[in-house]
Design a protein around this nucleic acid. Structure first.
Lengths: 229, 229
DNA sequence: AGTCGTTTCAAACGATCGTTTCAATCGACT
DNA sequence: AGTCGATTGAAACGATCGTTTGAAACGACT
Protein backbone atom coordinates (compact mmCIF):
# COMPACT_ATOMS: atom_id res chain seq x y z
CA UNK A 1 0.00 0.00 0.00
CA UNK A 2 1.20 3.48 -0.77
CA UNK A 3 0.55 4.61 2.79
CA UNK A 4 2.47 7.30 4.56
CA UNK A 5 3.28 6.76 8.21
CA UNK A 6 1.51 9.83 9.49
CA UNK A 7 -1.70 10.80 7.79
CA UNK A 8 -2.77 13.62 10.07
CA UNK A 9 -3.72 16.41 7.74
CA UNK A 10 -5.14 18.46 10.59
CA UNK A 11 -2.78 21.29 11.34
CA UNK A 12 -0.50 20.57 14.26
CA UNK A 13 -0.69 24.13 15.51
CA UNK A 14 -4.32 23.83 16.61
CA UNK A 15 -5.32 22.35 19.93
CA UNK A 16 -6.11 18.66 20.25
CA UNK A 17 -9.78 19.43 20.63
CA UNK A 18 -9.84 21.49 17.43
CA UNK A 19 -7.82 18.93 15.51
CA UNK A 20 -10.26 16.22 16.56
CA UNK A 21 -13.19 18.31 15.37
CA UNK A 22 -11.50 18.96 12.03
CA UNK A 23 -10.62 15.33 11.42
CA UNK A 24 -14.07 14.20 12.51
CA UNK A 25 -15.74 16.65 10.14
CA UNK A 26 -13.63 15.43 7.24
CA UNK A 27 -13.71 11.69 7.90
CA UNK A 28 -17.38 11.53 8.96
CA UNK A 29 -18.21 13.30 5.72
CA UNK A 30 -15.97 11.18 3.52
CA UNK A 31 -16.59 7.69 4.89
CA UNK A 32 -19.75 8.03 6.93
CA UNK A 33 -20.09 8.18 10.68
CA UNK A 34 -20.38 4.57 11.68
CA UNK A 35 -17.72 3.59 9.15
CA UNK A 36 -15.21 5.96 10.73
CA UNK A 37 -13.45 4.34 13.68
CA UNK A 38 -12.13 6.42 16.51
CA UNK A 39 -8.67 5.03 15.85
CA UNK A 40 -8.61 6.19 12.24
CA UNK A 41 -9.97 9.50 13.43
CA UNK A 42 -7.40 10.08 16.16
CA UNK A 43 -4.61 8.93 13.85
CA UNK A 44 -5.64 11.56 11.32
CA UNK A 45 -5.71 14.15 14.09
CA UNK A 46 -2.30 13.08 15.39
CA UNK A 47 -3.87 12.32 18.73
CA UNK A 48 -4.87 9.45 20.99
CA UNK A 49 -8.08 7.53 21.36
CA UNK A 50 -8.51 8.59 24.97
CA UNK A 51 -8.53 12.23 23.89
CA UNK A 52 -11.96 11.71 22.36
CA UNK A 53 -13.36 10.49 25.62
CA UNK A 54 -11.59 13.20 27.57
CA UNK A 55 -12.78 16.11 25.44
CA UNK A 56 -16.15 14.86 24.25
CA UNK A 57 -17.09 11.95 26.50
CA UNK A 58 -17.83 9.53 23.68
CA UNK A 59 -18.04 9.17 19.92
CA UNK A 60 -21.60 10.44 20.07
CA UNK A 61 -20.42 13.44 22.06
CA UNK A 62 -17.87 14.18 19.37
CA UNK A 63 -20.55 13.88 16.71
CA UNK A 64 -22.79 16.26 18.62
CA UNK A 65 -19.95 18.75 18.88
CA UNK A 66 -19.25 18.56 15.14
CA UNK A 67 -22.93 18.96 14.28
CA UNK A 68 -23.19 21.90 16.66
CA UNK A 69 -20.08 23.59 15.31
CA UNK A 70 -20.98 23.14 11.67
CA UNK A 71 -24.71 23.90 11.87
CA UNK A 72 -24.73 26.84 14.26
CA UNK A 73 -23.69 29.42 11.68
CA UNK A 74 -26.02 27.96 9.06
CA UNK A 75 -28.96 27.96 11.43
CA UNK A 76 -28.36 31.50 12.57
CA UNK A 77 -28.07 32.88 9.05
CA UNK A 78 -31.14 30.98 7.91
CA UNK A 79 -33.13 32.38 10.82
CA UNK A 80 -31.83 35.89 10.11
CA UNK A 81 -32.72 35.67 6.43
CA UNK A 82 -36.20 34.45 7.28
CA UNK A 83 -36.63 37.32 9.70
CA UNK A 84 -35.81 39.75 6.92
CA UNK A 85 -38.21 38.11 4.51
CA UNK A 86 -41.04 38.05 7.03
CA UNK A 87 -40.62 41.72 7.90
CA UNK A 88 -40.49 42.76 4.23
CA UNK A 89 -43.24 43.40 1.71
CA UNK A 90 -45.64 40.51 1.27
CA UNK A 91 -46.24 38.19 -0.36
CA UNK A 92 -43.10 36.12 0.03
CA UNK A 93 -41.45 34.96 -3.18
CA UNK A 94 -40.78 31.24 -3.51
CA UNK A 95 -37.45 31.99 -5.12
CA UNK A 96 -36.46 34.26 -2.24
CA UNK A 97 -37.53 31.65 0.30
CA UNK A 98 -35.52 28.93 -1.44
CA UNK A 99 -32.53 31.21 -1.72
CA UNK A 100 -32.72 32.14 1.96
CA UNK A 101 -32.63 28.48 2.93
CA UNK A 102 -30.17 27.13 0.38
CA UNK A 103 -27.51 29.82 0.25
CA UNK A 104 -26.43 29.60 3.89
CA UNK A 105 -25.88 25.88 3.35
CA UNK A 106 -23.88 26.38 0.19
CA UNK A 107 -22.15 29.33 1.79
CA UNK A 108 -20.40 26.93 4.12
CA UNK A 109 -17.82 26.38 1.43
CA UNK A 110 -16.64 29.95 1.53
CA UNK A 111 -17.31 30.45 5.22
CA UNK A 112 -14.92 27.80 6.47
CA UNK A 113 -12.06 28.54 4.11
CA UNK A 114 -10.25 25.50 2.83
CA UNK A 115 -12.34 23.31 5.14
CA UNK A 116 -15.55 24.45 3.53
CA UNK A 117 -16.05 21.43 1.32
CA UNK A 118 -15.41 19.14 4.28
CA UNK A 119 -18.09 20.90 6.30
CA UNK A 120 -20.59 20.84 3.45
CA UNK A 121 -19.97 17.18 2.78
CA UNK A 122 -20.34 16.34 6.46
CA UNK A 123 -23.72 18.00 6.69
CA UNK A 124 -24.89 16.39 3.49
CA UNK A 125 -23.81 13.03 4.83
CA UNK A 126 -25.50 13.43 8.19
CA UNK A 127 -28.77 14.32 6.50
CA UNK A 128 -28.82 11.02 4.63
CA UNK A 129 -27.57 8.87 7.49
CA UNK A 130 -29.63 5.71 8.04
CA UNK A 131 -29.09 5.57 11.79
CA UNK A 132 -32.04 7.09 13.61
CA UNK A 133 -29.99 8.41 16.53
CA UNK A 134 -27.63 10.29 14.22
CA UNK A 135 -30.50 11.88 12.39
CA UNK A 136 -32.16 12.85 15.66
CA UNK A 137 -29.00 14.60 16.81
CA UNK A 138 -29.13 16.56 13.58
CA UNK A 139 -32.86 17.14 13.85
CA UNK A 140 -32.58 18.53 17.38
CA UNK A 141 -30.13 21.09 16.09
CA UNK A 142 -32.04 22.27 13.03
CA UNK A 143 -35.65 21.61 14.01
CA UNK A 144 -36.55 25.10 15.27
CA UNK A 145 -35.35 26.87 12.15
CA UNK A 146 -36.56 24.19 9.75
CA UNK A 147 -39.95 24.26 11.38
CA UNK A 148 -40.18 27.96 10.66
CA UNK A 149 -39.23 27.40 7.03
CA UNK A 150 -41.70 24.57 6.62
CA UNK A 151 -44.44 26.85 7.92
CA UNK A 152 -43.26 29.65 5.64
CA UNK A 153 -43.40 27.35 2.63
CA UNK A 154 -46.90 26.36 3.62
CA UNK A 155 -47.97 30.00 3.71
CA UNK A 156 -46.20 30.78 0.43
CA UNK A 157 -47.86 27.80 -1.26
CA UNK A 158 -51.52 28.10 -0.24
CA UNK A 159 -52.68 26.00 -3.20
CA UNK A 160 -50.66 23.02 -1.99
CA UNK A 161 -51.94 20.60 0.63
CA UNK A 162 -49.86 19.53 3.60
CA UNK A 163 -48.40 16.53 1.82
CA UNK A 164 -47.47 18.71 -1.11
CA UNK A 165 -45.63 21.18 1.09
CA UNK A 166 -43.72 18.37 2.78
CA UNK A 167 -42.92 16.94 -0.64
CA UNK A 168 -41.32 20.09 -2.00
CA UNK A 169 -39.57 20.74 1.29
CA UNK A 170 -38.17 17.19 1.33
CA UNK A 171 -37.07 17.65 -2.26
CA UNK A 172 -35.19 20.81 -1.35
CA UNK A 173 -33.47 19.11 1.56
CA UNK A 174 -32.58 16.13 -0.58
CA UNK A 175 -31.11 18.19 -3.38
CA UNK A 176 -29.08 20.17 -0.88
CA UNK A 177 -27.85 16.98 0.75
CA UNK A 178 -26.92 15.31 -2.52
CA UNK A 179 -25.01 18.25 -3.93
CA UNK A 180 -23.32 19.04 -0.64
CA UNK A 181 -22.15 15.52 0.02
CA UNK A 182 -21.06 15.01 -3.57
CA UNK A 183 -22.39 11.48 -3.32
CA UNK A 184 -23.00 10.89 -6.99
CA UNK A 185 -20.03 12.75 -8.40
CA UNK A 186 -17.93 9.66 -7.79
CA UNK A 187 -20.11 7.83 -10.28
CA UNK A 188 -18.56 9.64 -13.24
CA UNK A 189 -15.31 10.59 -11.53
CA UNK A 190 -14.16 7.40 -9.81
CA UNK A 191 -10.88 8.96 -8.70
CA UNK A 192 -10.44 7.45 -5.29
CA UNK A 193 -7.84 8.04 -2.65
CA UNK A 194 -7.00 11.58 -3.64
CA UNK A 195 -7.71 13.48 -0.47
CA UNK A 196 -8.64 16.70 -2.23
CA UNK A 197 -11.51 15.11 -4.12
CA UNK A 198 -14.61 17.21 -4.64
CA UNK A 199 -13.58 20.80 -4.19
CA UNK A 200 -17.09 21.85 -3.27
CA UNK A 201 -19.88 23.67 -4.99
CA UNK A 202 -19.05 26.74 -7.03
CA UNK A 203 -21.02 29.86 -7.81
CA UNK A 204 -22.43 28.32 -10.97
CA UNK A 205 -23.82 25.35 -9.13
CA UNK A 206 -25.30 27.56 -6.46
CA UNK A 207 -27.34 29.49 -9.00
CA UNK A 208 -28.25 26.27 -10.74
CA UNK A 209 -29.41 24.73 -7.49
CA UNK A 210 -31.63 27.66 -6.53
CA UNK A 211 -33.07 27.76 -10.04
CA UNK A 212 -33.68 24.00 -10.08
CA UNK A 213 -35.45 23.94 -6.73
CA UNK A 214 -37.55 27.00 -7.45
CA UNK A 215 -38.51 25.72 -10.88
CA UNK A 216 -39.35 22.33 -9.45
CA UNK A 217 -41.62 23.79 -6.80
CA UNK A 218 -43.45 26.00 -9.26
CA UNK A 219 -43.86 23.08 -11.66
CA UNK A 220 -45.34 21.02 -8.83
CA UNK A 221 -48.08 23.63 -8.43
CA UNK A 222 -49.32 23.33 -11.99
CA UNK A 223 -49.05 19.56 -11.64
CA UNK A 224 -50.05 17.76 -14.81
CA UNK A 225 -49.36 20.62 -17.21
CA UNK A 226 -45.68 19.71 -17.47
CA UNK A 227 -45.80 17.94 -20.81
CA UNK A 228 -44.07 20.87 -22.47
CA UNK A 229 -40.93 19.99 -24.42
CA UNK B 1 -38.19 -4.31 25.35
CA UNK B 2 -41.44 -5.29 23.67
CA UNK B 3 -39.71 -7.81 21.48
CA UNK B 4 -41.25 -10.96 20.21
CA UNK B 5 -39.14 -14.08 20.25
CA UNK B 6 -39.26 -14.62 16.52
CA UNK B 7 -39.06 -11.53 14.40
CA UNK B 8 -38.78 -13.19 11.03
CA UNK B 9 -41.31 -11.42 8.88
CA UNK B 10 -40.07 -13.24 5.81
CA UNK B 11 -42.59 -15.86 4.89
CA UNK B 12 -41.63 -19.31 6.08
CA UNK B 13 -42.93 -20.98 2.94
CA UNK B 14 -40.16 -19.55 0.76
CA UNK B 15 -36.77 -21.15 0.49
CA UNK B 16 -33.93 -20.08 2.75
CA UNK B 17 -32.24 -18.33 -0.12
CA UNK B 18 -35.35 -16.31 -0.94
CA UNK B 19 -35.99 -15.48 2.70
CA UNK B 20 -32.44 -14.21 3.05
CA UNK B 21 -32.89 -11.99 0.00
CA UNK B 22 -36.16 -10.61 1.35
CA UNK B 23 -34.77 -9.86 4.80
CA UNK B 24 -31.62 -8.36 3.34
CA UNK B 25 -33.64 -6.09 1.07
CA UNK B 26 -35.72 -4.88 3.99
CA UNK B 27 -33.01 -4.50 6.64
CA UNK B 28 -30.37 -3.07 4.31
CA UNK B 29 -32.92 -0.48 3.28
CA UNK B 30 -34.11 0.31 6.79
CA UNK B 31 -30.85 0.40 8.73
CA UNK B 32 -28.18 0.69 6.07
CA UNK B 33 -25.88 -2.02 4.81
CA UNK B 34 -22.93 -1.82 7.15
CA UNK B 35 -25.21 -1.26 10.12
CA UNK B 36 -27.07 -4.51 9.41
CA UNK B 37 -25.27 -7.47 10.95
CA UNK B 38 -25.55 -10.91 9.44
CA UNK B 39 -26.90 -12.17 12.73
CA UNK B 40 -29.78 -9.70 12.77
CA UNK B 41 -30.38 -10.52 9.13
CA UNK B 42 -30.47 -14.28 9.55
CA UNK B 43 -32.62 -13.95 12.66
CA UNK B 44 -35.17 -11.98 10.67
CA UNK B 45 -35.06 -14.61 7.96
CA UNK B 46 -35.46 -17.42 10.49
CA UNK B 47 -32.19 -18.86 9.31
CA UNK B 48 -28.59 -19.36 10.35
CA UNK B 49 -25.49 -17.27 9.84
CA UNK B 50 -23.74 -19.97 7.85
CA UNK B 51 -26.58 -19.96 5.35
CA UNK B 52 -25.37 -16.60 4.03
CA UNK B 53 -21.95 -17.99 3.30
CA UNK B 54 -23.40 -21.16 1.84
CA UNK B 55 -25.78 -19.46 -0.58
CA UNK B 56 -23.95 -16.23 -1.34
CA UNK B 57 -20.35 -16.74 -0.25
CA UNK B 58 -20.16 -13.61 1.86
CA UNK B 59 -22.06 -10.53 2.95
CA UNK B 60 -20.88 -8.74 -0.17
CA UNK B 61 -22.14 -11.64 -2.28
CA UNK B 62 -25.53 -11.30 -0.64
CA UNK B 63 -25.52 -7.58 -1.34
CA UNK B 64 -24.65 -8.20 -4.98
CA UNK B 65 -27.52 -10.67 -5.25
CA UNK B 66 -29.97 -8.19 -3.74
CA UNK B 67 -28.82 -5.39 -6.01
CA UNK B 68 -29.05 -7.68 -9.00
CA UNK B 69 -32.51 -8.92 -8.10
CA UNK B 70 -33.93 -5.48 -7.38
CA UNK B 71 -32.32 -3.56 -10.21
CA UNK B 72 -32.68 -5.98 -13.08
CA UNK B 73 -36.33 -5.19 -13.79
CA UNK B 74 -35.77 -1.46 -13.39
CA UNK B 75 -32.83 -1.47 -15.73
CA UNK B 76 -34.62 -3.48 -18.38
CA UNK B 77 -37.68 -1.27 -18.34
CA UNK B 78 -35.59 1.90 -18.45
CA UNK B 79 -33.69 0.57 -21.44
CA UNK B 80 -36.93 -0.43 -23.16
CA UNK B 81 -38.49 2.96 -22.56
CA UNK B 82 -35.43 4.70 -23.92
CA UNK B 83 -35.51 2.50 -26.99
CA UNK B 84 -39.08 3.58 -27.64
CA UNK B 85 -38.24 7.25 -27.19
CA UNK B 86 -35.23 7.07 -29.47
CA UNK B 87 -37.19 5.35 -32.23
CA UNK B 88 -40.07 7.82 -32.00
CA UNK B 89 -40.54 11.28 -33.46
CA UNK B 90 -37.75 13.71 -32.60
CA UNK B 91 -36.98 15.84 -30.74
CA UNK B 92 -37.12 14.05 -27.41
CA UNK B 93 -39.18 15.75 -24.73
CA UNK B 94 -37.46 16.40 -21.42
CA UNK B 95 -40.62 15.45 -19.60
CA UNK B 96 -40.82 12.16 -21.47
CA UNK B 97 -37.16 11.44 -20.78
CA UNK B 98 -37.59 12.13 -17.07
CA UNK B 99 -40.70 10.02 -16.95
CA UNK B 100 -39.00 7.14 -18.72
CA UNK B 101 -36.25 7.13 -16.14
CA UNK B 102 -38.22 7.86 -12.99
CA UNK B 103 -41.33 5.76 -13.44
CA UNK B 104 -39.62 2.37 -13.56
CA UNK B 105 -37.95 3.26 -10.25
CA UNK B 106 -41.20 4.35 -8.65
CA UNK B 107 -42.94 1.42 -10.28
CA UNK B 108 -41.03 -0.90 -8.01
CA UNK B 109 -43.66 -0.30 -5.37
CA UNK B 110 -46.39 -1.87 -7.42
CA UNK B 111 -44.13 -4.38 -9.15
CA UNK B 112 -43.04 -6.21 -6.04
CA UNK B 113 -46.38 -6.33 -4.29
CA UNK B 114 -46.26 -5.78 -0.56
CA UNK B 115 -42.46 -5.79 -0.70
CA UNK B 116 -42.42 -2.85 -3.08
CA UNK B 117 -41.63 -0.21 -0.50
CA UNK B 118 -38.81 -2.37 0.86
CA UNK B 119 -37.28 -2.67 -2.59
CA UNK B 120 -37.61 1.05 -3.32
CA UNK B 121 -36.10 1.98 0.03
CA UNK B 122 -33.22 -0.42 -0.48
CA UNK B 123 -32.29 1.11 -3.82
CA UNK B 124 -32.60 4.61 -2.48
CA UNK B 125 -30.34 3.66 0.39
CA UNK B 126 -27.69 2.03 -1.77
CA UNK B 127 -27.50 5.12 -3.96
CA UNK B 128 -26.58 7.30 -0.99
CA UNK B 129 -24.24 4.82 0.67
CA UNK B 130 -20.92 6.34 1.72
CA UNK B 131 -18.89 3.18 1.17
CA UNK B 132 -17.17 3.25 -2.20
CA UNK B 133 -17.33 -0.51 -2.75
CA UNK B 134 -21.07 -0.58 -2.18
CA UNK B 135 -21.63 2.20 -4.64
CA UNK B 136 -19.42 0.50 -7.19
CA UNK B 137 -21.46 -2.68 -6.94
CA UNK B 138 -24.49 -0.57 -7.70
CA UNK B 139 -22.72 1.37 -10.43
CA UNK B 140 -21.63 -1.79 -12.23
CA UNK B 141 -25.26 -2.85 -12.40
CA UNK B 142 -26.77 0.39 -13.65
CA UNK B 143 -23.89 1.98 -15.54
CA UNK B 144 -24.80 0.82 -19.06
CA UNK B 145 -28.36 2.10 -18.89
CA UNK B 146 -27.51 5.25 -16.95
CA UNK B 147 -24.80 6.05 -19.45
CA UNK B 148 -27.37 5.95 -22.22
CA UNK B 149 -29.70 8.25 -20.27
CA UNK B 150 -26.89 10.68 -19.49
CA UNK B 151 -26.08 10.87 -23.19
CA UNK B 152 -29.76 11.28 -24.04
CA UNK B 153 -30.07 14.17 -21.59
CA UNK B 154 -27.03 15.76 -23.16
CA UNK B 155 -28.64 15.55 -26.59
CA UNK B 156 -31.99 16.81 -25.30
CA UNK B 157 -30.30 19.76 -23.57
CA UNK B 158 -27.97 21.15 -26.23
CA UNK B 159 -27.83 24.58 -24.55
CA UNK B 160 -26.34 23.06 -21.38
CA UNK B 161 -22.64 22.37 -20.99
CA UNK B 162 -21.32 19.05 -19.72
CA UNK B 163 -21.32 20.16 -16.08
CA UNK B 164 -24.86 21.38 -16.45
CA UNK B 165 -26.05 18.04 -17.79
CA UNK B 166 -24.33 16.20 -14.97
CA UNK B 167 -25.90 18.61 -12.52
CA UNK B 168 -29.46 18.00 -13.63
CA UNK B 169 -28.84 14.27 -13.92
CA UNK B 170 -27.38 14.16 -10.41
CA UNK B 171 -30.37 16.13 -9.19
CA UNK B 172 -32.75 13.63 -10.71
CA UNK B 173 -30.89 10.70 -9.15
CA UNK B 174 -30.80 12.44 -5.79
CA UNK B 175 -34.49 13.24 -5.78
CA UNK B 176 -35.29 9.67 -6.72
CA UNK B 177 -33.03 8.35 -3.97
CA UNK B 178 -34.45 10.65 -1.30
CA UNK B 179 -38.08 9.94 -2.06
CA UNK B 180 -37.50 6.23 -2.50
CA UNK B 181 -35.57 5.76 0.72
CA UNK B 182 -37.97 7.95 2.67
CA UNK B 183 -34.96 9.33 4.50
CA UNK B 184 -36.44 12.61 5.53
CA UNK B 185 -39.97 11.49 6.24
CA UNK B 186 -38.86 10.39 9.68
CA UNK B 187 -38.05 14.02 10.45
CA UNK B 188 -41.71 14.94 10.75
CA UNK B 189 -42.99 11.45 11.51
CA UNK B 190 -40.63 10.08 14.16
CA UNK B 191 -42.66 6.92 14.62
CA UNK B 192 -39.96 4.34 15.10
CA UNK B 193 -40.15 0.62 15.50
CA UNK B 194 -43.36 0.14 13.59
CA UNK B 195 -42.32 -2.24 10.87
CA UNK B 196 -44.81 -0.98 8.34
CA UNK B 197 -43.41 2.55 8.39
CA UNK B 198 -43.36 4.38 5.05
CA UNK B 199 -45.85 2.63 2.84
CA UNK B 200 -44.07 3.85 -0.27
CA UNK B 201 -44.73 6.46 -2.88
CA UNK B 202 -48.25 6.82 -4.22
CA UNK B 203 -49.55 7.97 -7.56
CA UNK B 204 -49.75 11.56 -6.39
CA UNK B 205 -46.11 11.65 -5.40
CA UNK B 206 -45.11 10.03 -8.66
CA UNK B 207 -46.71 12.79 -10.68
CA UNK B 208 -45.28 15.38 -8.33
CA UNK B 209 -41.82 13.93 -8.68
CA UNK B 210 -41.87 13.91 -12.48
CA UNK B 211 -43.24 17.47 -12.50
CA UNK B 212 -40.64 18.66 -9.99
CA UNK B 213 -37.69 17.20 -11.86
CA UNK B 214 -38.90 18.37 -15.26
CA UNK B 215 -39.64 21.85 -13.95
CA UNK B 216 -36.28 22.00 -12.25
CA UNK B 217 -34.41 21.05 -15.39
CA UNK B 218 -36.26 23.56 -17.52
CA UNK B 219 -35.68 26.28 -14.92
CA UNK B 220 -31.97 25.47 -14.95
CA UNK B 221 -31.89 26.28 -18.66
CA UNK B 222 -33.15 29.82 -18.23
CA UNK B 223 -30.78 30.18 -15.29
CA UNK B 224 -31.04 33.60 -13.68
CA UNK B 225 -34.56 34.41 -14.82
CA UNK B 226 -36.08 32.54 -11.88
CA UNK B 227 -37.00 35.52 -9.72
CA UNK B 228 -40.67 35.01 -10.49
CA UNK B 229 -42.96 34.67 -7.47
C1' DA C 1 -31.67 -50.24 4.93
C1' DG C 2 -27.90 -47.77 3.05
C1' DT C 3 -25.43 -44.24 0.46
C1' DC C 4 -24.50 -39.67 -1.40
C1' DG C 5 -25.02 -34.74 -2.23
C1' DT C 6 -27.41 -30.81 -0.39
C1' DT C 7 -28.62 -27.95 3.22
C1' DT C 8 -28.75 -26.39 8.09
C1' DC C 9 -27.04 -25.81 12.67
C1' DA C 10 -24.16 -24.59 16.87
C1' DA C 11 -19.73 -23.27 18.06
C1' DA C 12 -15.51 -21.10 17.65
C1' DC C 13 -11.91 -18.00 15.23
C1' DG C 14 -9.38 -13.72 14.64
C1' DA C 15 -10.18 -8.88 13.94
C1' DT C 16 -11.98 -4.58 15.18
C1' DC C 17 -15.10 -1.72 17.53
C1' DG C 18 -16.08 1.97 21.55
C1' DT C 19 -14.87 2.46 26.09
C1' DT C 20 -12.13 2.42 30.30
C1' DT C 21 -8.07 2.48 33.24
C1' DC C 22 -3.99 4.29 35.14
C1' DA C 23 0.46 6.08 34.93
C1' DA C 24 3.30 9.67 32.56
C1' DT C 25 3.70 14.37 31.06
C1' DC C 26 2.87 19.19 30.78
C1' DG C 27 2.06 24.15 32.44
C1' DA C 28 1.09 27.48 35.94
C1' DC C 29 1.53 29.04 40.54
C1' DT C 30 3.57 29.30 45.60
C1' DA D 1 12.32 23.24 43.49
C1' DG D 2 7.88 21.56 44.50
C1' DT D 3 2.79 20.94 44.08
C1' DC D 4 -1.55 20.40 41.73
C1' DG D 5 -4.93 20.26 38.07
C1' DA D 6 -5.17 19.55 33.14
C1' DT D 7 -3.95 16.77 29.37
C1' DT D 8 -1.85 12.89 26.93
C1' DG D 9 -0.25 8.18 26.15
C1' DA D 10 -0.12 2.93 26.04
C1' DA D 11 -2.57 -1.03 27.23
C1' DA D 12 -6.38 -3.75 28.22
C1' DC D 13 -11.65 -4.71 28.65
C1' DG D 14 -15.92 -6.71 26.97
C1' DA D 15 -18.81 -6.76 22.98
C1' DT D 16 -19.75 -7.54 18.28
C1' DC D 17 -18.42 -8.07 13.66
C1' DG D 18 -17.76 -11.35 9.23
C1' DT D 19 -16.02 -15.67 8.44
C1' DT D 20 -14.92 -20.53 9.02
C1' DT D 21 -15.42 -25.24 10.65
C1' DG D 22 -17.28 -29.83 11.29
C1' DA D 23 -20.98 -32.49 12.42
C1' DA D 24 -26.05 -33.28 12.20
C1' DA D 25 -30.36 -33.39 9.44
C1' DC D 26 -32.63 -33.88 5.22
C1' DG D 27 -34.29 -35.85 0.65
C1' DA D 28 -33.55 -38.74 -3.40
C1' DC D 29 -32.06 -42.82 -5.27
C1' DT D 30 -30.20 -47.90 -5.52
Amino acid sequence: MAGSDQEHTARQSASTRERLLESATRLFGERGIEATSLRALTDAAGSNIAAVNYHFGSKEGLLRAVVDQTMRAVNDERALRLDELESAARPMSIAALVRAFVEPGIGLVEGHGHRGSDVARFIGRVMSEPDARVRQIFAEQVEPVEGRYLAAFGRALPDLDEDGVRFVYTSMLGLLSVHQSGSFTTLWAPEEGSGTAASGLGIVDRERLVAFITGGILATLTARATTVP
